[in-house]
Design a protein around this nucleic acid. Sequence first.
DNA 1: ACCTGAACACCGTTCAAGT
DNA 2: ACCTGAACACCGTTCAAGT
Lengths: 194, 194
Amino acid sequence: MEIVDIGGVGGFSMRALGARLNIDPTAVYRHFRTKNELLEALADRVVRGDEPLPHTGDPRADLRETFAQLRGSLLRHPTLAPIVLRRPPGGEASWERTNHAIGLLRQAGLPDRQASDAYTTLLFYTLGHALTEARHTAATIARKGPDATVTPITAIGSSASRYPHLAAVADHLAADMREQFHDGLTLILSALAI
Amino acid sequence: MEIVDIGGVGGFSMRALGARLNIDPTAVYRHFRTKNELLEALADRVVRGDEPLPHTGDPRADLRETFAQLRGSLLRHPTLAPIVLRRPPGGEASWERTNHAIGLLRQAGLPDRQASDAYTTLLFYTLGHALTEARHTAATIARKGPDATVTPITAIGSSASRYPHLAAVADHLAADMREQFHDGLTLILSALAI
DNA sequence: ACCTGAACACCGTTCAAGT
DNA sequence: ACCTGAACACCGTTCAAGT
């Protein structure tokens, strides 16, 4: 995880891992069948995150919190985020979080079909949002090193005459993504009447 | 694009491209600075898609259509989908579609700030949804070859006792993803009062 | 049980040389 | 202007051999 956080997924190789562990690179194959399996184990740790799943008793608050946790964890390991999306469903931690979230939606009174749809919508929204933000963070780190301050997404550089609507809302598009994430979450939860 | 659609992004290499074109692999560097730049050009073609942007005059219908187009294009080139997400904003085709969609949201009466937020929400929802479906499609193709019928996502194999909520809605989670996509879109558009 | 080290079959990219 | 081909510095993975 250290190697990935510092050098990005691109900087992670079996040889780099071997060097970090003072071990022959091929020794890793005793513990993971392929490099991909190793990366997926890292991805599962990202989905789990550091904090315990929220249990305040308020489904709406807990739903906001679990998806905020997921977003936070993805942003803490930005270069790993695409792998979270790529890996097939089935990781231990992702099932844990899925089961918890669906439980909250059912607790909020949604019938099974709606709970399932709502979960899918919330998950995809969170993944898409976090990954786009993560992509930007990863690009900044790649350019300026791991300690660089991550600037807000730069305003659109394109000609205002070709893309007038885009130019009109450019300032808002560039605005704080954390706030945008929570606003979007609110939007979806209201639509669900939660 | 042919190489990528058949063998996946993993099967695409400068040497493979050279062989396909009966050309020395290094000749490609006369036309693209890096392999990544070449893949991003492909990703931009995926965002553009085959169909023209919808202009029926009904913002709600056009919004549904443009995001459905994007989803369709992503699913037609499933292994390229993660690259669409990874690349920084700025591709010609993606700006075209962004400008068009924001125009529709403004036409529907949303103020700039809300239009910006709504666009972000709709885009991330569509990307996340399509990419997860694409991931499944790509996995099926990798397992069974390019002509295999893509089966619906398999029901959860895990123990029902450990994840009771997940087991309860498993049938719905496994259901038709196209319908789920449109239901989610409806949910978000209603929340926007469009 | 775990690690080593040579080896295989690949990569992306650079650069001098050709036409 | 465009292509070639050798070369560089890497990859993931396998496998026989060691302890």
